[in-house]
Amino acid sequence: MPIKSYLAHPHQGKKQELVHELSSISSCEVIPAENNDLVIVVTETNNNTEDDILKEKIEAIESLKLLAMVSGFDTPKSN
């Protein structure tokens, strides 16, 4: 159950778009900064394969300029 957090930097003027795109992905929690062009993204997936697919999906978002990982945790799957 990988849990990861990222700092997502939008392209200029595209913060809202980025927040919108990210929010539409169900395994992403999105926390936009109030006063900066920066969005925190926390992802939670079932396994590494899903995690890789999700990362690719995020990186394909057009309004995203840069995705920087901050932390990664792997936790046993709960029932």
Binding site: L7, I31, V42
Partner: peptide, 12 residues
């Protein structure tokens, strides 16, 4: 998950 958010906030 909270830890992950916190790490991100600290980094930000």
């Amino acid at each position: 998950k909270k830890m992950a958010v916190m790490s991100a906030m600290t980094a930000a």
